[in-house]
């Protein structure tokens, strides 16, 4: 099927918007504020490995409620919560750390309104997706993401990054050491904002990650990858991208979960 120029232009715009949305992947649902804590549902906690000692494992729920996400030439303010559930623990003798992924939920967010006011055909949405690699090595929250770019003209599998080449974030509290042009930034140490359950407020950051090119945009074949890449400035080398995630985090030891 041939795609009209008008549609292609609309798609191009959408793609650009997409980049913006990508960044925004964070915001979609009602934004949590510093005064309104999100609900923490520990029923979604993953099962532990068979050999895990529950005394040394905990389930964590991290809700990113604000911040910014700059990918290439697109910078988005996070306005909708992104919720990550995971378990982590260690072997009490060897101290080998382990992490088990639970779930990752982020609403799609509007990157660009429809050119004709329509919410479907020409509007562009983006939605962050978990792409593996979750661990806490180095005292950081490390995880891989892709950003799904959603518009009928871009196909059903358009994304920024892929499972084989994801956006690899290493989110930490301490000061970063990025390549230029970025300069070091720091997160915010955790502060207790609630004790029942314990809820911490913190900011984790990373501005030393790279953003890969678009993947499978346009009939799922990559025909429109160039458009997304052009708009978003992809691929974007390390030193040109920034994640500042403001989070509420809660946790429970597995001895309290049954």
């Amino acid at each position: 099927m041939r795609i009209s120029l008008r549609r292609r232009l609309a798609a191009g715009t959408a793609a650009l918007t997409l980049a913006g949305s990508l960044l925004g992947a964070v915001a979609a649902a009602p934004a949590a504020s510093a005064d309104t804590l999100p609900d923490f549902d520990f029923s979604a906690c993953p099962d532990l490995p068979a050999d895990a000692d529950p005394q040394f494992w905990q389930c964590n729920i991290a809700v990113t409620y604000g911040g910014t996400f700059k990918l290439g030439s697109i910078e988005t303010t996070i306005e909708s919560p992104i919720t990550l559930v995971y378990a982590n623990g260690f072997d009490p003798v060897t101290y080998e750390p382990k992490t088990v992924f639970g779930s990752f939920k982020a609403s799609k967010f509007l990157v660009q309104p429809g050119l004709f006011g329509d919410p479907f055909v020409t509007a562009i949405y983006a939605q962050p997706k978990y792409a593996g690699g979750l661990n806490t090595d180095g005292g950081k929250l490390n995880l891989n993401l892709t950003v799904s770019v959603q518009n009928p003209l871009l196909g059903s599998r358009c994304s920024i990054g892929s499972s084989s080449a994801p956006i690899a974030l290493q989110l930490g509290i301490g000061t970063t050491n990025p390549p230029p042009p970025n300069t070091p930034i720091s997160g915010e140490p955790p502060v207790v904002v609630s004790t029942n359950p314990v809820v911490l407020k913190t900011t984790v950051v990373d501005n030393a990650f790279a953003v890969p090119r678009a993947d499978k945009c346009g009939l799922d074949l990559g025909l429109e990858n160039w458009l997304v890449n052009l708009y978003a400035g992809l691929p974007s080398a390390a030193g040109n991208n920034t994640a500042i995630f403001k989070q509420y985090a809660s946790f429970k030891p597995y001895t309290e979960l049954s």
Partner: peptide, 10 residues
């Protein structure tokens, strides 16, 4: 050695 867990690792 002594170790305890946290949400950002042991």
């Amino acid at each position: 050695t002594l170790a305890g867990n946290s949400f950002l690792g042991p």
